[in-house]
Simulated scan of single mutants.
Amino acid sequence: AGLVETVDPYDLEGTMEGFQRAKDFPGLSVVIARQPCVIKARRSGTRPRAFQVSDECQGCRICVEYGCPAIEFEGEMAKINNLCTGCGICAQICPSSAILEVER
């Protein structure tokens, strides 16, 4: 018997826990990430959640180190560009809670 973990990759903590359980399992383990393909979602007209950086940004660059192509720096503050897919991981990892979802 093996272990099957199903995770939401937009839930960073839950995803990390799922991978840890899979890693710790002594036998075969599989992790299934459940989210629609971003490319297909955009083609179908689905509008992603929008995020912006508030003035609380401390310039720590943790969001940039994450490697998301939608986050860049303008001066000493992060900025989210139009490559954002709306996953919200940046908001989950920002130690200053400076990245917020924008109501549309």
Score class of each variant (00 low, 15 high):
R34V: 15
G2S: 11
R43I: 01
G67F: 13
Q35E: 06
N81G: 09
R21V: 00
C94S: 04
Q92A: 15
I80W: 09
M77S: 07
V64M: 15
P48S: 10
Q92F: 11
S29D: 05
E13S: 07
V102P: 06
G2V: 01
R61F: 01
S44R: 15
S96N: 08
P9W: 10
G67A: 05
V31F: 07
I71S: 05
Q20V: 08
L3G: 03
C94I: 03
F25K: 10
R104M: 08
A50H: 06
C63M: 10
G75M: 10
F73P: 01
A98E: 13
V30Q: 01
Q92W: 10
A41P: 06
A78C: 02
P95D: 14
R104F: 07
T46A: 13
N82Y: 13
E13M: 07
P9M: 13
G18K: 01
I71M: 09
S29P: 05
V7K: 02
D11A: 14
M16C: 08
C90F: 08
R49N: 15
A33N: 06
R49I: 03
V7H: 01
D8H: 06
S54R: 01
G14H: 03
R47V: 11
P48E: 02
A50W: 00
Y10S: 14
V31C: 08
K79I: 03
I39H: 14
K79A: 04
C68W: 13
L28E: 03
A91R: 01
I89Y: 11
Y66W: 14
C37V: 08
P26L: 12
T15N: 14
R42E: 13
G75E: 13
R43Q: 12
I62F: 11
S96V: 00
K40P: 03
F51R: 04
R21C: 01
L3W: 07
A70N: 09
C68I: 06
I71C: 09
A91G: 05
V30F: 00
I62E: 10
E76A: 04
P48A: 04
T15L: 12
Q20S: 14
I89N: 11
P9Y: 11
G75C: 12
Q58S: 13
E101S: 04
P36S: 02
T15H: 12
S96K: 00
I89K: 12
K40R: 11
V102A: 06
C57R: 00
R49Y: 03
L12M: 14
P26A: 15
V53G: 05
R47K: 15
C87L: 04
E13I: 09
N82L: 13
G18V: 06
I99P: 07
R49C: 07
R104P: 14
E103M: 08
R49W: 02
A1K: 14
S97D: 15
I99R: 05
A1D: 15
I99S: 06
A1W: 00
E103G: 04
E72F: 02
